[in-house]
Design a protein around this nucleic acid. Structure first.
Lengths: 242, 242
DNA sequence: CCTACCAATCTGGTCTGACCAGATCAAGGC
DNA sequence: GCCTTGATCTGGTCAGACCAGATTGGTAGG
């Protein structure tokens, strides 16, 4: 969640998170008052309050009436939405986080694919083929397929007929793909990714659970390793991707 | 996420969701203007705007400047946070949703427990034993252990050393437990739940993956079945739990 | 010197009203 | 009938105000 908020609210959320990180605030610490934040950020208190409502809803902060604003979870310890928000904002990540995301994605996607093999409908297959074509069209036009990649993976999971799994994997996918946007710069990788996707659909169509499970494991792990290599390479010159 | 928002914001969020449901609004539909909502709900526009900021962040609505407020996802199609929010607000649920949540929980918790068997530390075991005692104390005092239940399950998952899995399961746990609050009214169920929890810790300590996996599957499925029975029983008199 | 109490101050919660600029739409001119 | 145009509506943002409870610092009493 938490993309494309109104500009002012979005920037205020960002500034607040940066404030927390910069001042090394931890769980339970108190933030400056709304009035001070509004002055510090150069926006009206109402704008600060909108940002705080978002942070509150994300369980990052807690506003105690007549008392103050307290950190509920450190930014590093927030919910998945917080992480997606951080990825959107281009903030840096603990390498451990990317490893955990990869592991979680493999767990959920593998089981989802197994279910998909059992339950996929003809409509699912049709949709997947269509997304496959769209994906191919994008890379033929030399575009960045990161959004199409998310859409495809989620459609694959949706074939499990479990909408909760889709919603669970959505933030994980969004995070990975934010990181992978640069990664898709390589034409070879785009092509390999498309081949993998085709193999997914074939396995699901053939109801071959074992093949699907093995494929997704390799696909995600390979991609994650490539991203990690790219990140380490990049971190020689820059600490984060802002 | 999205519990314990400030009272006004929370109720306004609720009213807005109810408005959407009541008027059968679908994706892309337009909501009344902020000014009209504020009048309709009897609160100031600033309060409406705070609620809309939350709904925006949850990707439920989209505010197009100078144009209007549009539904991005139908309430039924929102993210996990939306569902947790709905559960918090006591709104009704599609039975399919509870089934999907159960399935997703089993998938994630089973794999998390397997990892926990491999990676659990002494500190994890100490914490789990402590939570077990706290749980026992609560049911001895005839209290409702739903919060302790969430805490225990999440600690169990945390022993997998994968923080993303914890965050992924958090909303699923929160949802289940909101539903299960009534369910814990039965002393027999509270006792059985405690026994299950003890067995979890024993299996993780013994690093017995197969036992842990089987246990969690049975535990979650049994609980879900009981809740479903309770819900069907309750729905004879009331459609939802408001 | 320490404690207990009280008032000034600070804080979040909420409301009112205002201005801006772009989107929308209906009325009027061609 | 089509296009222009201006009134109107919308979200975005701001300033300032009041409330009531939490906090706190200083003072009076022990």
């Amino acid at each position: 969640m938490a993309s494309q908020l109104s500009s002012e609210t979005s920037t205020t959320v960002r500034k607040t998170l940066e404030f927390v990180q910069h001042h090394r605030l931890a769980k339970g610490d108190r933030l400056p008052s709304e009035r001070e934040l509004s002055e510090r950020f150069g926006v009206a208190r109402s704008s600060v309050r909108e940002a705080l409502a978002v942070l509150d809803a994300m369980r990052i902060t807690e506003r105690k009436p007549k008392s103050g604003i307290f950190l509920r979870n450190a930014v590093e310890d927030g919910g998945l939405d917080t992480l997606v928000l951080q990825a959107d904002l281009g903030l840096a990540f603990d390498p451990q986080v990317t490893r955990d995301v990869t592991e979680a994605r493999i767990i959920c996607e593998e089981q989802a694919l197994r279910l998909a093999c059992q339950r996929r409908t003809e409509a699912d297959l049709t949709k997947l083929r269509r997304l496959l074509d769209a994906y191919a069209a994008i890379i033929d036009a030399d575009g960045n397929p990161s959004d199409a990649d998310v859409e495809f993976h989620l459609a694959l999971v949706a074939a499990s007929q479990n909408r909760i799994l889709v919603r669970t994997l959505t933030p994980l996918m969004l995070m990975s793909t934010t990181w992978r946007r640069r990664y898709f710069d390589s034409a070879a990788i785009r092509r390999r990714s498309l081949d993998d996707h085709r193999a997914f659909v074939d396995a699901v169509e053939a109801r071959d659970e074992a093949a699907a499970a093995a494929l997704v494991k390799r696909h995600v792990q390979t991609a994650a390793a490539d991203v990690r290599a790219l990140a380490e390479q990049g971190s020689a010159t820059a600490t984060n991707t802002t």
